[in-house]
Amino acid sequence: MVEAAWAYLLSHPKLFRDALVTHLTLSGCALAIATILAAPLGIILSRSPRAALVAINAANVARTVPSLAVLAIMLPILGTGFAPSLVALTLLAIPPILINAYVGIRQVDPDAIESAVGMGMTRLQVMARIELPVALPVISAGVRTAAVQVVAGATLAAFIGGGGLGDFITSGIALMQLPLLLVGAVPIALLAVGTELLFHLLERTLTPRGMRPGSS
């Protein structure tokens, strides 16, 4: 069966490459848009406790909504294809990034901030030199969670005509062709694990040396 899957892969290189590219484009764009929207929003929310209470609670509820529900509900609203999938995946990626950006800034030691202000830093300097660098590991952990979720969610885009590697699995099940299942499932699994590892590395790189666990 593994050989059959391998043979299929070799005989349909373009089909596979297109699916992979769609999968990566979909995931990458959704993650990028969500980060650009949610990270600054989370940081702004850390400045206004009242709005944050509402927004963070909403994000926590949104986080529990099943990925398939978010994708499927796009169908009646936006129809099928790439765009609805992109919207759905972006929505999936927003809550973890938003929450971590907020928490990341909020957990910065208030005494360090008081010292910084007391030493004559402007608000912008405090943000750029103290708050952001200290919060960066937590923020990037949120992006990592979102990335893994988006790569998995992109698999489900196959259900609403968004394409990607999930297509091989849906056809494999529809036609009961087991090798086709492998052509989809193995790359998806590798992609997810690879994403996790890549973002883990990124998170470590972004963690200032003085704050890395176990480096003292």
């Binding site: 901030i113 008081e114 910084a116 030493m119 103290i130 200290v134 200032p208 003085g210």
Partner: peptide
Amino acid sequence: YVIQQIGLFPH
């Protein structure tokens, strides 16, 4: 300005 909690910048 020196405070009891010091507030050194950890990074």
